[in-house]
C-alpha cells in the first residue's frame, strides 16, 4: 500500500472512528505506572531501581496489550480495505501511519532501512507520552531505563498476532539526552500457519 494511502487511512480512522480522551490523562497514567515499577523493582542489596528489570516488565506489559490491540486495529481499518500487507515495507507504513496514528495520534517517520529490507527505524518527532517526563537524576536511569519500552512490547505483540515475529527495541530516546527518539523494528521470521499433522 502506498505511503500516502496509509496516511489517509490513519487520518480517517483517527477522525471518525476513534473515541478520544485528553492526552494528559494518558501521559500521567503511564508516568504513574513506570514510577510504580521503579519503586517495586529494586535491587534488594542496594535498594536502587533495577532498570533492566523495569524495561523487561514494561515490554511484557506492552506485549499483552499488543495481543489484544491488533483486533481493534483490524476492526477499525477493515472497511478501508482489509488487504494484508504484501511485504514488510507495507507493514512498516501501516504501523507508522495507521497504527501509531490511531492509538497515539502521532506519525513516526519510517527511516534507516537495512539493505535486505528486513529492519527499519521509526523516528518520533514528538512522543506525547513523554510530556512532563524527566528521568531520575541518579546517574543511571538515563543510561539504563527505556521509559517507553512498553511500546516495543505492543508492536511485538500486535505483529505476532498477524504472523510476524519481530524484534523491537529503542535505539535512542530524547529523554536519555539523545537527539532523536527511534525504535528499531527487525523482522525475524514470518510465522507459518502450522497445520496439524493429519489435516488434509
Amino acid at each position: 500500500m502506498a505511503s500516502s494511502k496509509a496516511a489517509r487511512m490513519g487520518e480517517e480512522v483517527w477522525k471518525t472512528r476513534t473515541e478520544k480522551i485528553n492526552l494528559e490523562v494518558l501521559t500521567l497514567t503511564y508516568g504513574t505506572l513506570v514510577s510504580q515499577l521503579t519503586h517495586d523493582l529494586r535491587d534488594p542489596a542496594t535498594n536502587i531501581p533495577d532498570y533492566a528489570a523495569i524495561n523487561t516488565e514494561l515490554d511484557r506489559m506492552g506485549h499483552s496489550i499488543g495481543l489484544r490491540l491488533i483486533e481493534d486495529f483490524l476492526a477499525k481499518t477493515s472497511s478501508a480495505g482489509p488487504a494484508p500487507c504484501n511485504n514488510f515495507r507495507e507493514t512498516a507504513e501501516m504501523i507508522a501511519k495507521v497504527g501509531f496514528k490511531i492509538f497515539l495520534n502521532v506519525t513516526p517517520r519510517v527511516e534507516n532501512w537495512d539493505k535486505e529490507g528486513r529492519s527499519f527505524g521509526l523516528v518520533f518527532e514528538e512522543m506525547p507520552v513523554s510530556e512532563f517526563v524527566e528521568l531520575p537524576d541518579d546517574g543511571r536511569a538515563q543510561e539504563e531505563l527505556w521509559f517507553l519500552n512498553l511500546f516495543c512490547g505492543v508492536v511485538k505483540g500486535a505483529l505476532e498476532m498477524v504472523q510476524m515475529q519481530v524484534k523491537a527495541e529503542w535505539v535512542s530516546d530524547v529523554l536519555r539526552g539523545d537527539d532523536t527518539t527511534e525504535m528499531r523494528v527487525t523482522l525475524i521470521r514470518y510465522i507459518e500457519d502450522e497445520m496439524p499433522p493429519d489435516d488434509e
Binding site: 494518558l26 505506572l33 492509538f103
Partner: peptide, 26 residues
C-alpha cells in the same frame, strides 16, 4: 521539559482505547 510551554498539551486529544489498555495494565 523546561523548554516547553506548560500548556502545550492542555487540549490535545488522544485515543480513549489506548488509555483503556493502559489503565487495564495498571
Amino acid at each position: 521539559i523546561y523548554d516547553r510551554n506548560l500548556n502545550r498539551t492542555q487540549t490535545t486529544p488522544t485515543s480513549l482505547p489506548s488509555f483503556a489498555y493502559l489503565f487495564n495494565t495498571l
